[in-house]
Design a protein around this nucleic acid. Structure first.
Lengths: 338, 338
DNA sequence: TGCCACGTGGCGAGCGTTCACATCGTAGGC
DNA sequence: GCCTACGATGTGAACGCTCGCCACGTGGCA
């Protein structure tokens, strides 16, 4: 009968306070239908004993865990990991706790197992922040039993999962348009990995904007999101001849590209204009400060959560894309009169 | 009696398979002491019904949730958010699921509430990745009931919580020593915010190394980790006269500082040598590539988890600090013969 | 005085699982 | 051919909580 070192339970509180455990439960959940006197007494005992509600017992009987799962691609790319924070924070504001699983290179099998683990733990919904095409399929399998929202730049409505995204195609068009409006007739593109939806979409936006202005699209160069790949490409382009302007698919790649330029004595933006993408924290600090496209991760995370909550509670929600914004700094200017 | 759309339970499986729920339970957990025939039959029914174990019921009876809580400072500083991924990943490898809470500016009250939420949800331990001095106190309150590991550069053993850290003081000494060995007699320091333990410790390391070489410590400049603050300080220093070398408390600040230099036509490393700290992803891409101190976040995260697990399971564990490493690139060189 | 309503509190059941123990049948040893 | 032992299964209780319902007492009204 000795309570040992076990955490105090409802019954322990009830015994000490001289009421039934039911009454204690009522005090905890809203305190309705309990007289002020008993309520205060119970509250006192709770404080005295250091009682903490056991949410797992609670979840068992209510069959609501008030938790969601978040799967995030943690490869060293800017977006995912800061979106994760935004999603989690929005979840907490809504009273949910986030179980998270990050993976630096998401394999099908691992992702599937993670999904299963989340389901067993009773999450009420899942957010996937991983723009790899392959993950969509895994998500689909589990979606029958659970609301899933996938944060991805592609539209994948056919999968039966809700997809929300930042309109990166628009972002790419904004970047390209900025260069065109500055007077550039030659806007090249250094693309990101085409394995990522982001890479595909940014490329598509660039093409579309060029077409809209009846400008020809120069040959595309493909990097792999790393600064190093962009640096190597930059060196090659310096040797082969530079365009008057270029839209680079990410800030980090823009940075690598610029390094090749500096080494060769090419000036930015005097000799070549550059626009990046992401608005990384370093973008305003490089020389010259980088004109780029800002993704509003915080907003995206919050909206994403809103959509998931909507689906959990059976509400209809607006999942129109978030809109990115051009941030003009100093890496792009009017072309040199040739 | 209609099972409705409820998820199938052990009993449902048992009924269909024509065995008791106990047998099903045995099949799930190891399958010991069950004949092959029935095991296969049960497995078949499980697959057919799409049964998934309910971990919350399981946790209730075993009183083990196999989950940990992670509180991370998500302010736009490099370290915390990538450490988070490392910790979570290590936890998953050990069979634990991570509940995470990120906060961009951790206030006492919010942190306390988060701790409580974690406790109510039955986490078996908590990792705090937040080098703010103030959080240590909050952590202490909860530590009586739960193992807490705090990832922090300061030693706070008096708090009764386990502290693990990367030896940033050593890192700062490494950076300073590198500059001295290159031949610099004047090594300035641009410090980070002293509200952060990291900022204090890096400053201390710089001082210690200077002292060890009997070199005087120039007046310290204080930034707030932002690139902008470093840029402003850089401009002022350019006007007032530059030292021959400087150790900057973070890569991002180093970048801002270098921007001020470029604008003034000062060359790196010809006119001034610079060493940063963190080895951010952009460090190798800036021009010139930044010599800096690498923190091994992945290792730190894994060790951190190891320590927590040790405390959960009552094992004795080694929590000696992780050691950072100097990465030599091109922003520091021998001083110009004056 | 009787009745009903309502505010307060208690009781019992059940959520889905595991654990300790009981049961049953069969094979092995003498 | 009986007893023992063990392998294969079933039974009951418990984990800590919430939910539905019932019981009790008091006050207002006819």
């Amino acid at each position: 009968m000795s309570s040992g070192s076990r955490r105090p339970s409802l019954k322990d509180v009830a015994r000490v306070a001289g009421v039934s455990y039911q009454t204690v439960s009522r005090v905890i959940n809203g305190g309705d239908r309990v007289s002020v006197a008993t309520r205060d007494r119970v509250l006192g005992v709770i404080a005295e004993l250091g009682y903490r509600r056991n949410d797992v017992a609670r979840a068992l009987v209510t069959s609501r865990t008030r938790s969601i799962g978040v799967i995030a691609d943690a490869s060293p790319k800017f977006g995912p990991v800061s979106t994760l924070a935004a999603v989690e924070s929005a979840a907490r504001d809504a009273g949910y706790t986030a179980l998270v699983a990050t993976m630096s290179y998401p394999e099908q099998a691992v992702v599937a197992r993670t999904f299963q683990d989340f389901v067993e733990r009773g999450v009420e919904g899942i957010v996937v922040i991983a723009p790899r095409v392959s993950l969509a399929h895994v998500a689909q399998e589990v979606t029958a039993s659970l609301p899933v929202v996938m944060l991805s730049p592609g539209e994948a409505s056919q999968l039966g999962i809700t997809v929300f995204y930042e309109d990166q195609e628009l972002g790419a068009r904004l970047a390209t348009r900025h260069l065109i409006e500055l007077g550039h007739r030659e806007v090249a593109h250094l693309a990101g990995s085409q394995d990522w939806l982001d890479g595909q979409v940014r490329l598509r936006g660039w093409q579309a904007e060029l077409r809209a202005h009846q400008l020809a699209a120069p040959a595309v160069r493909y990097g792999d999101w790393s600064g190093e790949s962009a640096y190597l490409i930059g060196r090659r382009m310096v040797a082969e001849g530079l365009p008057s302007s270029i839209f680079v698919a990410s800030d980090l790649m823009a940075l690598g590209f610029m390094r090749a330029l500096y080494e060769a004595g090419v000036r930015v933006p005097a000799d070549i204009s550059i626009v990046g993408f992401d608005d990384n924290e370093f973008a305003p600090q490089v020389y010259p400060p980088l004109t780029t496209v800002r993704q509003s991760f915080a907003t995206v995370g919050a909206r994403c959560m809103e959509i998931l909550l909507g689906r959990i509670e059976g509400r209809e929600v607006d999942n129109s894309p978030a809109v990115p914004e051009l941030v003009v700094r100093h890496s792009a200017a009017a072309p040199h009169p040739a």
